[in-house]
């Protein structure tokens, strides 16, 4: 197999005396879609933030394309430029229009000319179906539209891997579908993705691999079939059937 895009080894995160997770290792291969599931409070979001260095794990190492980004002296901004992130609560830049939200990174990170950035940003908004909303400010967009702009903003920088932190959890039920649709298309296009979500229907459909996280550690991992049909662990089975009842149907409509 070729070199993995992202490798994390023995990550441990603590806040004071509180251990959020311990000894987590994972490998993300190119074009892979990995879904992380687990009850709240098990550090799923914190894990994603550790992976793009928005917060720092106390122990462990992370490699991006074979380069250790947790090494002392490594420029963390450079790592983040290659790892896209989509947040639960969108976090668009409030003072910028949809188009300008996408342009900012292209101009300041990718150092594109204004014209080039504009062109690229327009294309990215088209890709998420929002070409006609490019002049709108975040406050004028629905949650689903905002999240799609958030996805476009991250994608525009052509990241090696995209991290999704519960991208649909803050959305009204009827807006979830449009966001999942975009993400499904990304998976089909071969985007490398690592996501935390409760959308089990979606996970079953697009994930190559699922990781079940509980009590700060990986309890079980495997293909969606493995986890849904033949869970090795009673706890996995319990959780997935319960959450499937809640979120599974909604997602399959997408």
């Amino acid at each position: 197999m070729s070199q993995p895009v992202l490798v994390a080894k023995n990550l441990t995160k603590r806040y004071g005396k509180n251990t959020i997770f311990q000894n987590i290792s994972l490998t993300v291969q190119e074009r892979e879609t990995i879904v992380i599931v687990g009850p709240s409070g098990t550090g799923k979001s914190t894990l994603l933030r550790c992976l793009n260095l928005l917060t720092h794990a106390e122990e462990g190492q992370i490699w991006l394309d074979g380069v250790e980004i947790t090494a002392k002296g490594y420029n963390e901004d450079r790592a983040r430029q290659q790892i896209g992130m989509v947040f639960q609560n969108f976090l668009l830049f409030n003072h910028l229009t949809a188009l300008e939200n996408v342009i900012l990174g292209l101009r300041r990170v990718k150092k594109l000319s204004h014209e080039e950035a504009r062109l690229r940003a327009t294309r990215e908004l088209e890709r998420v179906g929002l070409a006609d909303r490019s002049g709108h400010y975040p406050g004028q967009l629905s949650g689903g539209q905002q999240q799609r702009v958030g996805i476009a903003r991250a994608l525009a920088l052509e990241p090696r891997v995209m991290l999704f932190d519960e991208p649909t959890s803050a959305l009204d039920p009827e807006l979830i579908g449009e966001v999942l649709e975009v993400m499904k298309q990304l998976a089909l296009d071969g985007t490398t993705m690592l996501m935390v979500t409760h959308e089990m229907g979606f996970a079953r459909e697009v994930a190559n691999r699922m990781i079940f996280l509980e009590k700060g550690g990986i309890l079980e991992e495997g293909t969606p079939e493995d986890l849904f049909e033949r869970p090795q662990n009673e706890r996995t089975h319990q959780f997935l059937s319960k959450i499937g009842d809640l979120h599974g149907k909604k997602a399959s409509k997408a």
Binding site: L54, D77, R80, M85, L104, G105
Partner: peptide, 11 residues
Amino acid sequence: GQMLAGRAIGL
């Protein structure tokens, strides 16, 4: 949140 979002795109 705005700081997080800015850092996340590599600023």
